[in-house]
């Protein structure tokens, strides 16, 4: 196990090479490349990456240009985990045959559509098989690349192009799927939720996930100003509010033991996270008060469940 105790210092990090080179075509203010940059920078191992079809993929490797300074493969939408499991299997073959001395680690990136929905089977299979890979979901809560369609990660009530806030139906009518818990149910050595706003926490988690021998899963909140209908420079602010409202609790499950990594002194109201986002605007109309209440109740229920599981008292 590599050293995961050393804290990350900005001074030293600033000297590290950025493995996702600037010049890629992600939207300005997008959370995803920040997430990827932080995670890649945290690794103590050389990495090979796999990428599901999606915003990150289409914007970082176009024609002859690539932003990736590490070996990278994209095949399709639903199979970043299966593709990476093949890469990792070939690595094991090379090691066995003495064709490679280095210890290499393998990391997949997929959005919530490619992970929660269409790629769930491929991800589950790869985790069950015990490949030494890390799967990172950058969760922006909808199919942003195709133009903001609802996914199973889209929060209740959110306005998307396929769950529009209409005259009769006020946005998405279902709660989000809790993918982090589903991954934890695979009993893999490491599962965690992170946020780029809490970069030291996220980088520590990435370092642990990469170093661990076996499969690991990171679910990372990734604000999308196009889909969230928020200001271009609010990604980190919104990610922070997501954490502080307990919409996106920071926790990790190491060998089955759950720890909460950030407990707000005063849990902020979910509305603080929602107000700056146009996708929730309609929920503040009086007739949708019940949706808002249901959302808050879901967040509270989940937070209390986490506290109980971590053996901590709820406030």
């Amino acid at each position: 196990m590599a050293d995961t105790k050393t804290s990350f210092r900005l001074k030293e990090l600033s000297k590290k090479e950025n493995l996702l080179e600037s010049g890629h075509r992600m939207c300005s203010g997008c959370g995803a490349p920040i997430v990827v940059k932080q995670i890649l920078m945290a690794s103590e191992y050389p990495l090979v990456a796999s990428n599901a079809t999606g915003c990150l993929e289409v914007s970082t490797c176009i024609s002859e240009y690539t932003a990736w300074k590490i070996p990278w493969i994209h095949t399709a939408f639903e199979n970043a985990a299966a593709t990476l499991s093949g890469v990792e299997a070939m690595y094991r073959a090379w090691k066995k045959q003495g064709r490679l001395d280095k210890d290499v680690k393998f990391i997949a990136f997929g959005g919530d559509g490619g992970t929660y929905d269409i790629g769930l089977q491929s991800l589950s299979g790869a985790m069950e098989r015990g490949h030494d890979i890390v799967y990172v979901c950058y969760d922006n809560g909808a199919y942003m690349n195709t133009g903001i369609q609802r996914s199973s990660a889209t929060p209740l009530g959110a306005n998307t192009t396929t769950s529009p806030a209409g005259k009769v139906i006020p946005g998405k009518t279902q709660q989000r799927k809790d993918l982090t818990r589903i991954m934890a149910a695979h009993n893999i050595p490491y599962v965690a939720q992170g946020s780029p706003s809490h970069w030291r926490d996220l980088m520590t988690k990435a370092r642990k996930a990469i170093a661990v021998d076996g499969p690991a899963f990171l679910n990372v909140l990734s604000p999308c100003n196009r889909g969230w209908r928020s200001a271009t420079d609010d990604a980190i602010l919104l990610a922070r509010l997501g954490v502080e409202t307990c919409y996106w609790p920071l926790y990790e499950i190491e060998d089955g033991k759950l720890s909460i990594n950030f407990k707000p002194k005063e849990k902020k109201s979910l509305e603080e996270f929602m107000k700056p986002q146009g996708r929730f605007k309609h929920l503040f109309a009086p007739e949708n008060a019940s949706v808002l209440a249901e959302l808050q109740a879901g967040i509270d229920r989940e937070w209390n469940r986490l506290l109980a599981e971590a053996g901590e008292e709820s406030k």
């Binding site: 176009i62 070996p71 990278w72 493969i73 095949t75 070939m90």
Partner: peptide, 14 residues
């Protein structure tokens, strides 16, 4: 892909 000294990108958008 396992030639780490010469990183390659597979599967671009064209």
């Amino acid at each position: 892909l396992l030639d780490l000294d010469n990183p390659k990108s597979y599967g671009p958008l064209i």
